[in-house]
Design a protein around this nucleic acid. Structure first.
Lengths: 215, 215
DNA sequence: CAGGGTCAGTACGCCCCCGTATGGTCTGCC
DNA sequence: GGCAGACCATACGGGGGCGTACTGACCCTG
């Protein structure tokens, strides 16, 4: 009788967090419209009666899911590459993360697709700005002045996002295996100007500092 | 009495094309779910009775709208920059088009967001592949061999798409005026390697040909 | 043991959309 | 004038989602 089948003695009572997690999963899988009370209730093995005890309405659930997303997005990402001191390697790591961890990217695209909802816009904007800020800092640490760092950061961020889009919509256009690594190397080499390149005014006024740590 | 208010004596009778155009507009404005029979009928000032005369069902309308999109996407775009012989200038034109004409990009994002529908995937894939093929040809014309051209084309295409996404989701992160032109110049200079750059194996084995026409 | 808080089931009304059936109104053509 | 076909309105049944009201079971605590 007990709703088992879950590891660790399967809690038999749901809380708001369970609903929020389920909502976020549904969001990733089917977009904003998939965050619906009754389907989620069915999926969780309960009825609406439960839901409306934990949340005031559908909107509240959506907000909870988005808060969960924002939390994960900032905590996780920054935690996974926060211990890297070399700004060059930081950007490289971000790039590789962004191109490997496909799930997080899918989630972003699913959420951002509902840009007409003000609530969603709010969260998307915060997350995006935080990501961009981080990138800008990386490029500044590489020796760029603020305006140039912003341009390069935006450039790199746009390329991340576009790769996500390509991967989702037309995976055939995205190489795998060795060619993919070539592709990745090309993007990294192009998007993170190294110290040697100073023949152009668009490149950093950097002297040394780079490519010394982490052999 | 006649439903006027339109230029040129306002047709009083709808046809399938009118429905398809309206559907595409709705698609651009509100995503795939906005392509609904009854709302569109209301908007067009008629009832469902009209719709189900022209189309078998909602699916058929969606297909018609997507065909319209594909047609516009390939005809228009290639027509607007087809008379440019210089491959460098072709890419530049594409870039500027992509960053100026925001509407077409919005449409792509709205359509691609419904990537779970097989029908949509089909069209998105065709359109994307055609765009990529065109870019690959441009890069090949610049002197790249096929694999490298594919990498650069994908790179550039990803950057297009990402810029679209940024523009839609976080317009504040996209500069305007002079800074935008700087940004554009940076991307163009970076994404279209010029003849002078040959210190790297990733750059074209090109000798001259470039930057002679159009002073 | 009584009572209150927690969580869930049932049932209802509402809205909005799909698709069908059927009938009505124009238009042009014979 | 009458017929056929193009175009549209009305009405209906079905489905699914939202939100509310009420009831019920299970703790836990006084």
């Amino acid at each position: 009788m007990s709703p088992s089948a879950s590891p660790a003695e399967a809690k038999q009572s749901l809380n708001a967090g369970d609903w929020a997690r389920a909502a976020l999963d549904a969001l990733a899988a089917g977009g904003i419209d998939a965050v619906a009370v009754e389907p989620l209730a069915r999926q969780l093995g309960v009825t609406k009666g439960s839901f409306y005890w934990h949340f005031a309405n559908r909107e509240a659930l959506l907000r909870a899911a988005l808060e969960l997303w924002e939390k994960r997005e900032t905590e996780d990402v920054l935690a996974r590459i926060g211990d890297e001191s070399d700004p060059y390697e930081r950007i490289v790591k971000i790039f590789k993360e962004a191109n490997a961890g496909y799930r997080a990217g899918r989630l972003y695209l699913a959420i951002a697709a509902a840009e007409d909802k003000p609530l969603v816009r709010e969260f998307v904007q915060r997350v995006s700005e935080r990501r961009m800020d981080y990138l800008v800092e990386c490029y500044q640490a590489l020796g760029f002045d603020r305006p140039r760092a912003r341009h390069w950061a935006r450039f790199a961020y746009a390329t991340f996002m576009g790769n996500l889009q390509i991967r989702r919509d037309t995976p055939d256009l995205m190489p795998t295996g060795a060619p993919f690594n070539e592709y990745l190397k090309l993007m990294i080499k192009t998007l993170i100007p190294r110290e040697g390149v100073d023949k152009s005014a668009d490149h950093p006024h950097v002297v040394s500092m780079r490519r010394a740590g982490s052999p």
